[in-house]
Design a protein around this nucleic acid. Structure first.
Length: 790
DNA sequence: GTGTAATGCTATTGG
DNA sequence: AGCATTACAC
C-alpha cells in the first residue's frame, strides 16, 4: 500500500476532489469511461484511511460481481482485513439480508423464499385460472409488469384498489380485475412465505417506514452511503436511500444520465435529475475526461447522444489518439452478419495480436446470439454468452433447487408444484389442484393441507393420500437435518432420496447426460461452499463472526441464490473467450474491440420503442452505452434480411448510424484522397495507409499499457495499419454521385420527393429530401437506394 | 395418472 | 424456429 494518501496521485483534479469531499451529499456525474469505478473505490479507501469504520460504509452496486471487485480493489489500497466488513452489494442482496435479520417486524419467517420471475409468472397464471380470467386478455407478463410497477412506486394492493384513476384506466382497457389479481398475488406470496424481487425493496420500505427504531438503527449503521449507477434506480430504491441517509446526509451518488437504460423496469431518470432538489447543499462533480476510448469513438458517441433532449449538461472529451474509424458493415442476412463478425475477429487477431478476450459482440436482443454463435463456432473462435439461459435457469437445476427450497420453507408453493410429482410418484394434477383449492378455501398454505390431510374432507383416494403422506415425511426428514448437516451432505441426501439423481442418471441421451453433469456441478458448488469457500454474494454478518467455524448450512447457501445472475459468476477453465451479450448486460464493461450488430430499424431501435419520444431516447442511450464500451475499435453492422418469428424479414438500416458523425465512419469503400485508385468495388481486403497514430500526449492511463500487441514497434504499427475487414458489398449508388439540390428522387418506402439539401462528400453524403407523402427525411445516400427521377 | 403427438404462441431489455 | 400448452390414446 502506498503511504500517506499518495494513492490520490493516481487521480485527476476533479476525481481527487470528488474523493476528498466526504461529508454531506455529493453527486458525481460520470461520463462514460471517466474513471467512475476508480473514484468510488478510492473514495471508500479514503474514508477508511480517514478513520471511518468500515462497518459504517454501505456501497450499493449494480451487480454483485462489481461489488466483489470493488471490495478487492479497496483491500489492495488499504491493506489488511478491514475491507471485509464493508457492506457492498446490489440493492436486492443487501436488503434481503436486512429483511432476514428483521423478519419478525414484517411477520415473515427468517427463511422466506425469494421468488424469481418464473415463480411469479406461474403464480399469476394459477390465480388467473382460479379467477377464470382469460390469459389472452390478462397476459401474465403484462399483469406481472403492472404489479411490478405498482410496487416499485410503493403502491400497495389496497392503494391500487382504492385509486379511482387506476381503476378507471384498468376498466377502460378491459382489465378491471387487475387490482384483484394484485391483491390475491400478494396474499399468496405471503402464505407461501415468499417475496418476489420487487418485494425485497418494497418490504424494506415498509420496514423503515413503520419501525422508527429499525430506521434509526440502520441510519447509524450506514453513516456513509454510496450508490453506483444511480441513474438506474427506481422510486422504491430512491426512497430507501433517502430514508437511510436522512440522519447523516453523507450520501454520494454516481451516475450518468446518458447511460440510463432501465426505465422499462421502473428506473426513474428523475432520481438523478432531481437529486439537487433533495439536497440543496449538494456538491456536484463532473467527470468528463474519458480514459477508455479513442477520440473517434468519443466523438461518435457524443454526436449521437446530442440528439436527446433531456440531459445534464456535460462534455465528454479525451486526450486519447484518434485511432481507427468506426467500420460499418452491411450483410445480406443475419447469418452473413455473423460470418462478417467472425471474420473480422479472426483478421484482427491475426493483424494486431489481440486475444479472444479482447472482443465483445453486443446485440439488442438475446435471440440474435444464435447467428453469432454459429459463425464463431465455424471459425473455431472460443466464446462465452452472458445472459440468456443462465445456469440457475436450467430445468434440472431449478428442479433440485426447488427441493432445497421446499426443505427450507415447506410453504413455498411454487417449489412444491414443481417437485411434488417429479420424479413421478403418482400425485397427479387433479389431486394437486384439490390440495391447492382446499388451501385457498381455508386460507392456509398447501403444505399445511398436506401435513394435516385427514383433517380436511378431501375427495382424494386413500392410495394417493398415502403417497402424499410419504412425500410429506420425506421432506420433513430432510428439514430436520437443516441445522445438523452441512450444505453438501444435506443437498446430496436430498438429491438421492428424492429420486432426482437417479432419474437423471437413467437418461442416457446426450441432453440427459449433460443435465446429470449440471446437477453434479451444482453439488460440487455446494461442497466448496460447505468447506468454507466464499459464497457468491458475500456480505459482512456479525453473527457469523461470533462463531467462525459454524456449520455452513443449506439454508445459508440458498439465501440469495435467486439473486445471482451469471454476470456474477467467475469463469473457470477457458478465460480467453469472445464475450457475447446484450447491450444491457455490457453496462459498466469495456473491451478493446467491440462488434455491435443488428443495427436495423425495428430491432435497434426496437419496434416497441418507436411509439414515444422517451422510449426512443432510451434506445439512443442504449446505443450510446454500446458505442462507449469500445476502447480501440468499433464495428457496426446490419443485415438486409433477418429471420424473425421463423420467417424472413426485410430490414432497413438503423437511424442511429445516420445520427453518428459521418467523419468517424468507414463504410469500407475504398476512398483515397491523394492517390486516387480505381473507383470499382473490391471484395478483397485492401491495405490502408494509416490509422493508428501513436500519440504521446496521453499518459498515466491504461491506454498506453493495454494496447494490443506488445508496443508500438514498427512491425506492429504496420500490422495495425493493415487492419481491414472485407469491404461489404454495397448498393451501386455511383449514379447518385452527382445528386443535387432540386432533383426529384424516389425511395422504396417514402415515395417521391425533392432534394432540398446535401451534406458531406460522396460517398458519405447525406441528402435531405422532402417527400410528398412522408415529409422531410435525412438520408444517407449510401443506404437509401434512391432513384433519380428527374 | 402417464406418455406422446399435435397445436399454437411467441421474443425487447433483467435483478 | 423453438417451446409450452393442450389433446388424446394407453
Amino acid at each position: 500500500m502506498k503511504q500517506g494518501g499518495s494513492f490520490l496521485d493516481d487521480l485527476n483534479d476533479v476525481q481527487r476532489k470528488a474523493v476528498q469531499c466526504t461529508e454531506g451529499p455529493v453527486m458525481i456525474v460520470a461520463g462514460a469511461g471517466s474513471g467512475k469505478t476508480r473514484v468510488l473505490t478510492y473514495r471508500i479507501a479514503y474514508l477508511m484511511k480517514k478513520g471511518v469504520d468500515s462497518f459504517n460504509i454501505l456501497a450499493l452496486t449494480f451487480t454483485n460481481k462489481a461489488a466483489k471487485e470493488m471490495k478487492e480493489r479497496v483491500r489492495r489500497i488499504v491493506g489488511g482485513n478491514e475491507a471485509k466488513n464493508l457492506w457492498m452489494g446490489t440493492f436486492h442482496s443487501v436488503f434481503s439480508r436486512i429483511l432476514r435479520a428483521e423478519h419478525i417486524k414484517l411477520g415473515y419467517p427468517q427463511n422466506f423464499t425469494i421468488y424469481d420471475t418464473d415463480d411469479s409468472r406461474s403464480l399469476i397464471k394459477e390465480i388467473l385460472r382460479e379467477q377464470q380470467l382469460d390469459e389472452k386478455i390478462y397476459k401474465p407478463n403484462m399483469v406481472l409488469s403492472r404489479i411490478s410497477h405498482a410496487k416499485n412506486n410503493l403502491m400497495s394492493a389496497s392503494s391500487y384498489n382504492n385509486n379511482p384513476q387506476i381503476l378507471e384506466d384498468d376498466t377502460l382497457s378491459g382489465k378491471p380485475k387487475l387490482g384483484l389479481v394484485y391483491r390475491i398475488y400478494q396474499k399468496r406470496l405471503f402464505k407461501s412465505a415468499a417475496m418476489d424481487f420487487d418485494d425485497l425493496l418494497y418490504n424494506t420500505n415498509v420496514l423503515l417506514r413503520d419501525h422508527s427504531d429499525i430506521l434509526v438503527k440502520y441510519q447509524h449503521r450506514f453513516k456513509y452511503i454510496l450508490v453506483d449507477e444511480y441513474q438506474d434506480t427506481n422510486f422504491s430504491q430512491y426512497v430507501i436511500v433517502k430514508q437511510l441517509a436522512a440522519a447523516f446526509r453523507n450520501i454520494c451518488v454516481v451516475g450518468d444520465d446518458a447511460q440510463s437504460i432501465y426505465a422499462f423496469r421502473g428506473a426513474n431518470i428523475q432520481n438523478i435529475l432531481n437529486f439537487e432538489k433533495d439536497y440543496p447543499e449538494i456538491s456536484t462533480f463532473k467527470l468528463e475526461q474519458n480514459y477508455r476510448s479513442t477520440n473517434t469513438i468519443v466523438n461518435a458517441a457524443n454526436s449521437v447522444i446530442k440528439n436527446n433532449t433531456e440531459q445534464l449538461p456535460k462534455t465528454v472529451w479525451t486526450k486519447n489518439p484518434a485511432g481507427e474509424k468506426i467500420k460499418v458493415m452491411k450483410a445480406v442476412s443475419d447469418n452473413e452478419e455473423g460470418h462478417l463478425v467472425a471474420k473480422g475477429i479472426f483478421d484482427l487477431k491475426m493483424n494486431t495480436g489481440a486475444f479472444n478476450k479482447d472482443f465483445a459482440v453486443l446485440y439488442r436482443t438475446n435471440a440474435q446470439s444464435r447467428a453469432m454463435e454459429e459463425a464463431l463456432r465455424k471459425h473455431s473462435i472460443s466464446y462465452k454468452i452472458y445472459g440468456g439461459l443462465s445456469f440457475y435457469h436450467r430445468k434440472e437445476i431449478k428442479d433440485i433447487l426447488a427441493y432445497f427450497r421446499l426443505v427450507i420453507n415447506a410453504n413455498d408453493e411454487e417449489s412444491l408444484k414443481r417437485v411434488i410429482n417429479y420424479p413421478t410418484r403418482g400425485i397427479g394434477e387433479t389431486s394437486l389442484h384439490k390440495l391447492i383449492l382446499a388451501a385457498t378455501d381455508h386460507d392456509v398454505s398447501t403444505w399445511t393441507v398436506m401435513e394435516n390431510i385427514s383433517d380436511f374432507n378431501l375427495d382424494i383416494s386413500t392410495v394417493t393420500k398415502n403417497r402424499i403422506g410419504d412425500f410429506v415425511t420425506m421432506i420433513k426428514s430432510h428439514s430436520n437435518k437443516l441445522m445438523k448437516l452441512n450444505a453438501y451432505d444435506l443437498g446430496h441426501e436430498i438429491a438421492t432420496a428424492s429420486g432426482l439423481l437417479k432419474e437423471l442418471y437413467n437418461d442416457k441421451t446426450p441432453e440427459g447426460v449433460s443435465r446429470f453433469e449440471n446437477v453434479q456441478e451444482l453439488l460440487n458448488g455446494l461442497k466448496e461452499f460447505s468447506e468454507g469457500a466464499d459464497p457468491a454474494i458475500s456480505l459482512p454478518d456479525e453473527e457469523k463472526k461470533e462463531n467462525a467455524k459454524k456449520l455452513r448450512t443449506l439454508e445459508e447457501y440458498m439465501a440469495d441464490i435467486a439473486l445471482l445472475t451469471d454476470a456474477d459468476e467467475d469463469d473457470e477453465d477457458d478465460l480467453d473467450r469472445v464475450s457475447l451479450m446484450t447491450i444491457h448486460a455490457s453496462k459498466g464493461l469495456e473491451f478493446p474491440n467491440v462488434f455491435l450488430v443488428g443495427l436495423e430499424e425495428n430491432l435497434f431501435p426496437s419496434q416497441y420503442a418507436l411509439t414515444s419520444r422517451p422510449e426512443l431516447e432510451e434506445e439512443r442511450r442504449l446505443f450510446y452505452v454500446a458505442v462507449t464500451r469500445a476502447e480501440y475499435r468499433l464495428n457496426l453492422s446490419f443485415a438486409e434480411t433477418r429471420y424473425r418469428w421463423g420467417s424472413l424479414v426485410q430490414c432497413e438500416v438503423s437511424r442511429f448510424i445516420a445520427e453518428l458523425d459521418q467523419d468517424c465512419l468507414d463504410y469500407g469503400v475504398k476512398r483515397k484522397k491523394k492517390d486516387k485508385l480505381n473507383e470499382e468495388e473490391s471484395d478483397y481486403p485492401v491495405k490502408r495507409e494509416k490509422t493508428f497514430r501513436a500519440s504521446s500526449s496521453n499518459s498515466g492511463t491504461k491506454y498506453a499499457t493495454t494496447k494490443p500487441g506488445r508496443s508500438t514497434d514498427k512491425k506492429n504499427l504496420l500490422k495495425m495499419s493493415m487492419v481491414q475487414l472485407t469491404p461489404p458489398k454495397t448498393f451501386d449508388n455511383s449514379h447518385l454521385k452527382d445528386l443535387q439540390i432540386g432533383m426529384t428522387v424516389e425511395h422504396e418506402r417514402f415515395g417521391k420527393g425533392e432534394v432540398i439539401a446535401m451534406d458531406g462528400k460522396y460517398p458519405n453524403s447525406k441528402a435531405t429530401v422532402n417527400f410528398v407523402l412522408n415529409g422531410q427525411k435525412s438520408l444517407l445516400i449510401k443506404f437509401a437506394r434512391l432513384k433519380i427521377v428527374s
